[in-house]
C-alpha cells in the first residue's frame, strides 16, 4: 500500500522540478499583474469620485468573496461556452491555455487583496509629507510617484511577503484545471503509480520550505528598508 517506488523514478523528480518552475511562474506573474491591477484599484478608491470608488469596492467585494476554485471553474469551464467570445483577443490570449487561465484568475483574485493592501499603505502616509511636497512645488503626478507611492510601498512591504505566501499556496489549486504546477505534476504521476500519498508528502514538504524562504527574504528586505522614524513606525 505505502511503498515509495515512485521516488525512484526520474519522471517523478522531473515533474517536481518542472512543477517548481510553473509554480514560480504562476506566483511571479500573478503578483506582478495583480500589483498593477491592485494599484489601479487602490488609486480608484483613493482618488476617484463616488462612482469610481463604488466600482473598485464592488470589484474587491466580488473577487475576495468568491472561492478561487469557483473562479477557476468559471473561467475554465464556463467562459468557453460564451460563443461570441470565440475568436476574440481575450479568447486567444487567455482561454486557450490552462496555464494562462490560471495566471489570469490568480491575478484578478490577487488584485482584490492587493488593492485593499495598497489602499491601506496610501492612507498610512502622513498628510504632512504630501503637503510638504506640494509646498515645494511638485506636481500631483510627481508627488504620487516620488513621495506617496514609494512611502506607501515601504509600509506594506511585510504584507507583500505574506501575500506572496498566500499566492504560492493558492496556486496549488490551479492543478484542478490541469495545470502541472508543483502540486499538479507530481500528483498526476501519483495516480499512474497508484500511490497518491507519497507525491503529496514530498510536494507538501517543498511548499513548507518555499514559504519559509519567502519569510526569510521578507524579513531581510524589511530590516534593510526600515529606518527609525519613517513611515514604518506607523505600521503597528
Amino acid at each position: 500500500m505505502l511503498n515509495f517506488a515512485i521516488l525512484e523514478t526520474s519522471a517523478f523528480w522531473w515533474a517536481v522540478l518542472n512543477g517548481l518552475g510553473v509554480t514560480a511562474a504562476l506566483t511571479v506573474l500573478s503578483m506582478i499583474f495583480g500589483f498593477i491591477t491592485g494599484g489601479i484599484l487602490a488609486s480608484m478608491n483613493f482618488y476617484g469620485g463616488p462612482g469610481v470608488r463604488m466600482g473598485a469596492k464592488i470589484y474587491i467585494f466580488v473577487f475576495r468573496g468568491v472561492p478561487l476554485l469557483i473562479l477557476l471553474y468559471l473561467f475554465y469551464y464556463g467562459l468557453p461556452r460564451v460563443t461570441w467570445l470565440r475568436g476574440s483577443y481575450f479568447w486567444d490570449l487567455i482561454l486557450t491555455s490552462p496555464f494562462r487561465t490560471a495566471v489570469f484568475v490568480l491575478t484578478i483574485n490577487n488584485a482584490a487583496y492587493l488593492g485593499e493592501m495598497i489602499r491601506g499603505g496610501l492612507r498610512m502616509v502622513p498628510a504632512g509629507l504630501l503637503e510638504a511636497a506640494a509646498a515645494v512645488g511638485m506636481t500631483k503626478t510627481r508627488i504620487f510617484f516620488r513621495v506617496h507611492a514609494p512611502l506607501a510601498l515601504r509600509s506594506i512591504l511585510g504584507n507583500l511577503g505574506s501575500e506572496t505566501i498566500a499566492v504560492v499556496k493558492a496556486s496549488a489549486i490551479t492543478s484542478v484545471i490541469t495545470v502541472r504546477d508543483l502540486m499538479g505534476g507530481p500528483t498526476v504521476l501519483g495516480k499512474v503509480y497508484l500511490d497518491p500519498l507519497t507525491p503529496l508528502l514530498v510536494v507538501g514538504l517543498i511548499y513548507v520550505v518555499i514559504v519559509q524562504l519567502i519569510d526569510l527574504v521578507t524579513r531581510m528586505v524589511g530590516r534593510r528598508l526600515s529606518h527609525p522614524g519613517t513611515v514604518q513606525a506607523h505600521h503597528v
Binding site: 493558492a170 500519498l197 503529496l200 508528502l201 510536494v203 507538501g204 511548499y207 513548507v208 520550505v209
Partner: peptide, 21 residues
Amino acid sequence: NLFRGLPEIIVIFLIFYGSNI
C-alpha cells in the same frame, strides 16, 4: 510553521488518502 507553508488543498488530500491507508 508547517501549516503556514502547506497549501490547504494538500492538507485535505493528505488527511483523506492518509486516513484511508
